[in-house]
């Protein structure tokens, strides 16, 4: 059954996965080829390093974009048909959710593998300076885990009860508005709740902390 779920999700997300794979191949080639010009058979190291750092941001954006599109496409067909198909299946709800999530993780894994393979090939072809090393496997693992988190968050949100979603959205909006008003009228020095949310989400142990570190294909 998992194969059937995977096949349908692949059908829905195929364009974005293929585009993701193409971009995963283009990013390292562009990073190692264009900005870092060569003179006298040696890279100008700071320029090369900056180029790799820029590629790191592109990897992060790619991971985020692919994760969001795959998460939305996972539940889109079920949402349109009021989840009748899912309810008619002879398996427990949790098993179906697990399969859907697993299929999404596999599809994201395909892009992560492409990131690793293309990164590895590009860095093997490029004559890197002795002090710099390529880390395609580390980058691929980071890419996969990094994309699974926003995928999981959106996946969970869409798979939730609509009443809950409305409640969460309204509560969040109210808290943000009150927080901004308190700051605007001088009752607080800074936005308290928004800062707390930002720290919790992007802090060292927050779920999106991975997006604050650099995803370097080539590093020291």
């Amino acid at each position: 059954m998992f194969r059937a779920v995977l096949a349908t999700q692949w059908k829905w997300a195929r364009p974005v996965i293929l585009l993701g794979v193409l971009l995963a191949g283009w990013i390292p080639v562009e990073a190692l080829r264009s900005t870092a010009y060569r003179t006298a058979d040696t890279y100008y190291i700071p320029s090369l390093y900056n180029s790799i750092a820029m590629a790191s941001t592109m990897y992060q954006l790619l991971a985020l974009a692919v994760a969001l599109v795959v998460a939305f496409s996972t539940w889109q067909a079920d949402s349109l048909r009021q989840h009748v198909y899912a309810l008619s299946l002879p398996i427990a709800r949790w098993q179906f959710v697990l399969m859907r999530f697993g299929a999404g993780a596999v599809l994201l894994g395909a892009v992560a593998v492409a990131v690793g393979v293309f990164g590895g090939i590009a860095s093997a072809i490029a004559p890197l300076p002795a002090m710099l090393h390529a880390y395609p496997v580390g980058l691929a693992v980071r890419f996969w885990l990094g994309s699974l988190i926003p995928f999981g968050l959106i996946f969970a949100l869409i798979a939730s009860n609509p009443t809950w979603i409305r409640f969460v959205v309204v509560a969040f909006a109210t808290i943000v508005v009150v927080d901004l008003l308190l700051r605007a009228f001088g009752f607080t020095q800074n936005t308290i709740v928004m800062q707390w949310i930002a720290t919790s989400v992007f802090g060292p142990s927050g779920p999106l902390a991975a997006f604050l570190s650099r995803w370097m294909l080539v590093d020291v």
Partner: peptide, 21 residues
């Protein structure tokens, strides 16, 4: 560990959800 914990929490939350309600 933090990533896996977050992913597990998302899956658990999704499994309890009843989006057809």
């Amino acid at each position: 560990l933090a990533s896996l914990a977050c992913i597990a929490a998302c899956i658990a939350w999704s499994a309890r959800g009843k989006p057809w309600v």
